[in-house]
Nucleic acid binder design. Structure first.
Lengths: 216, 216, 216, 216
DNA sequence: GATGAATGAGACTTCATTCAT
DNA sequence: CATGAATGAAGTCTCATTCAT
């Protein structure tokens, strides 16, 4: 049954179908995380899965659909973890800390997923047109500035930096799982808290939870 | 006569040999920057260079050596621009600013080189063993801490973040050359100045005087 | 239970078996007529039939048997329409006209069947050994000559020409159903009537009075 | 050097290049003629040529270009033989006879070419849009009618019939080279002479002065 | 009876590399 | 020094067929 021509009947895809697709997606993630996107041929993925190469073609319309599924699955799982925690924060500083913290939490639980997605996005970046759309993160930063909680900076550049830092940590973590993610989270949170907040000399930051106070 | 088995006579590689290699490296850079590493086959490179595909094989042991040469050449050119300016600074803060500024200057003058190297590194990251050696930048940051100029933070993580931010800007600049590099330099310099500097001298952060450590 | 290894019990194939086979044959015909033999994979056929691909394999020993069945079914249906009308004629000229006319009639009523068979024969011609057996049509033409109703010509070549013309009209009709088959029938009938009949007894054709003889 | 990216310099393709392409085209023709278009994979063609499969990809942009080259080569050779002889005739009847005769002459000299082209055209017919353009042959027939030399008939249908007959003879000749082409030429010429000529001047056929028309 | 699932063969294509000239 | 030519490995995808349920 080809995924493309699948007739979604009363029951949709069978349980086995779902399980197989999930398994293949998982193997694809492992393979990409392990040997890199460039080397992750269908052959390699199938080999790791212990299945024939054609099985992938049977459950997915093609390599593209498989990769797309990887992105979708991981993105959804990540968003489900991250955004609720971000939304729960009341201050922009808290939001930023939650954003970083929850990213690294997700990374700890799903290191390969993060690495694989990172690989895929990098490899596709060259081919996909640069997206100049505002990202959710950038929008949050902008909001923090409007609220006067953040100092004046380029939200876009700051967003790029935060994302790049998170991705880099992801890659490093995959390369060396002994990396202390908790410590990395604290460090990143503090670094970007300092970078985004208008610090006011004389006001201390005992717990690094920056206070709002516009200076200059 | 393959480059690898070249017999180094009295004079080493001939002038023509050197010039040819340089030309090929340049063409490789342009091709990779233009169409991405994944699409940059030897065929494509040779075509853009207006030379035969075999010329590359003649002057280089293989594609790997060519790519390695690209990395070497660009890295050397970059280092030649960056480190003198960094060394000229007397304070760690000045050093960091010079590091960022000179990187973006190099980027403006050699966008293709930067783009090509960026592409190559991305595609090879998975295969290259993670280097746990201390990078020069990390060492500088550490020095700034020893001098008491920088606050306490993880030098390694900070170095990662800085490098990641610079790479990200490089990619964005390649994708959209209208990006204002001067502004980006100012922004990044300020962001990392804030992140690295203990703005409230005398007040330490006992709860986070940590380093990103391995193990556990 | 494979069709080939089917155990013919008391009653032979069951009613369901027969019906299923007929349905599959029909779907195969429609698919081949619609998208061409080259594109008509079992997948395509099963999809159009709304059945599983395996059903075909279950009821037929393989694709070959299915295709063979298509040929058989259509040929039988065609023969059932054509030969009675041909037999009903008393003269050879009438027979020829009836042959052509009934072919085009069958074509009008069963355009897909004709198209499918046409496609199949084309694709299998190279593989099937050329049949040097005398065809029924050729035999009829020969009879017309014996009766003195037809002039002297090569019956085999004439039969080839007639069949080729009918096939060509079939293909054209499938490609463009607005083709006027009645008109085509009249035209073909007249053309071959003129070609086969010694129209002016006593008038010789000194410039090309060729005899029919096989072999060089 | 890929055919597509070939830079046509001063001298154009090298002698060897031309020879290799010609050889491959020839092998493609032989293969198609021998085992049919459907079975004529690049593997098969390369095998018969005694070369590697990649050699074909080296000299041709892809299978499509190879097949196109086969069509072009054979069509040009055929046209070069046929049309001068047709043009040399002064009467329409002579033209038609020359058309048939020269086709079979070409067939005798290049049986495989004719068979291959026949196969290719048949296999592509289903995919290519039916051409409703007037063919040169049809135009000639029309001219013969205007001159009053030919009787009234549908030029399009007659052209179809003639072409179909020639193609059929080609296939039969390939299947059985002992076929007497001279006799076939005489037979076909006579058949179509009879079919096209108003053999009884003064006797018109008012009931069938029709053309194969569309619509309805 | 029926079918979802799996599979191996083979198709076309791209690519880095090698070789003879 | 240079290159046209050739090649084999590997990639993605399609397909007819087989098997366990």
């Amino acid at each position: 049954m080809q995924s493309k021509s699948r007739t979604i009947g009363r029951d949709g895809p069978s349980f086995i179908e779902v399980a197989r697709r999930a398994q293949i997606v998982e193997c694809a993630i492992e393979t990409i995380a392990a040997i890199g996107y460039a080397q992750a041929s269908l052959n390699q993925i199938a080999e790791r899965a212990g299945i024939s190469k054609s099985v992938i073609s049977y459950h997915f319309a093609g390599k593209d659909e498989l990769i797309q599924q990887v992105l979708t699955d991981v993105s959804q799982a990540g968003a489900a973890l991250i955004w609720p925690r971000v939304q729960a924060e009341t201050t922009s500083a808290g939001m930023l800390r939650a954003y970083i913290q929850s990213h690294l939490d997700f990374m700890r639980d799903h290191p390969k997923q993060v690495a694989a997605v990172s690989e895929i996005l990098l490899y596709h970046r060259a081919q996909t047109t640069a997206e100049h759309d505002t990202t959710p993160l950038e929008e949050r930063l902008r909001q923090g500035q409007r609220d006067g909680e953040f100092r004046t900076f380029s939200p876009r550049l700051m967003a790029w930096t935060i994302r790049a830092a998170l991705d880099e940590v992801a890659r490093q973590y995959v390369a060396d799982p002994s990396l202390d993610l908790d410590e990395a989270a604290r460090e990143l949170a503090r670094n970007f808290a300092l970078a985004t907040t208008a610090h006011t000399p004389g006001l201390t930051h005992p717990d690094s939870g920056c206070q709002v106070s516009r200076g200059g």
